[in-house]
């Protein structure tokens, strides 16, 4: 099953500690939670706004809570999860910075993945005077849910500004994982970025 999993999700499966408690923001049809439950004995909940996805989660036996993540995580207590995860949805949030802050409040660790808007494909399209349409950004400018795209460099600036500690980082392109070329020129070559973050002053987070 792992072979069919989206690369960023597969990687999260390796990062997350066994039997941990997890909250997945924008969980879609529950693929990640099902994978983590199966392979890591992880328990938790997905938050999802789309009724079709909610129904699919329920049909798969995944705990799902129908809600709008943009409304915040006020129903969740401080530090009540080992991990709060958000995959490929940060760029669709009204205020990505606030969402990450909330993730770091509710979770001892946050994991976010997002498409890197600095990737060469994006730059190439823009250099041609066109909005980019790439494998990780498949929508046209007029129907995309992505309203707050950022580059790896932008995101790391925000982390530094807010004092979020980067515990782990992985940069992927469509086929490859984290090879030497990406590590050398992350902002140019990475298609998808994955970060494990911790709130400032929170030194007892779990690292696996």
């Amino acid at each position: 099953m792992t072979a069919m999993l989206r690369p960023d999700l597969a990687l999260i499966g390796e990062w997350v500690g066994p039997n941990s408690r997890i909250l997945d923001l924008g969980c879609g049809d529950g693929t990640l939670l099902a994978h983590l439950a199966r392979t890591r004995g992880v328990r938790g909940y997905g938050l999802e706004i789309d009724p079709e996805n909610v129904a699919r989660c329920v049909e798969s036996g995944i705990n799902v809570i129908e809600t709008d993540v943009d409304d915040g995580l006020k129903d969740f207590r401080d530090g009540s999860f080992d991990y709060v995860v958000m995959t490929q949805a940060l760029q669709a949030m009204q205020r990505p910075d606030r969402v990450v802050s909330e993730m770091l409040r509710v979770g001892r660790t946050a994991i976010v993945t997002f498409p890197n808007f600095g990737q060469w494909r994006v730059r190439l399209a823009l250099a041609r005077g066109r909005m980019p349409v790439t494998p990780s950004l498949p929508e046209q400018w007029y129907d995309t849910p992505n309203i707050h795209l950022c580059t790896v460099a932008d995101f790391e600036d925000l982390c530094a500004l807010r004092g979020w500690k980067v515990l782990r980082r992985s940069l992927l392109d469509h086929e490859r994982r984290d090879d030497w070329a990406i590590r050398l020129m992350p902002n140019l070559l990475a298609e998808v970025a994955i970060y494990m973050l911790q709130a400032p002053g929170n030194g007892n987070g779990r690292r696996e």
């Binding site: 408690r21 328990r43 909940y45 009724p51 909610v54 129904a55 989660c57 329920v58 995944i62 705990n63 799902v64 809570i65 129908e66 809600t67 129903d75 969740f76 207590r77 009540s80």
Partner: peptide, 21 residues
């Protein structure tokens, strides 16, 4: 209903919540 869901999450129970239009 969200009050119920919140209490269930806080208690660590398995719960799903659907909001039907």
């Amino acid at each position: 209903s969200r009050e119920i869901v919140k209490a269930l999450v806080d208690a660590g129970r398995d719960v799903s919540y659907a909001l039907v239009d």
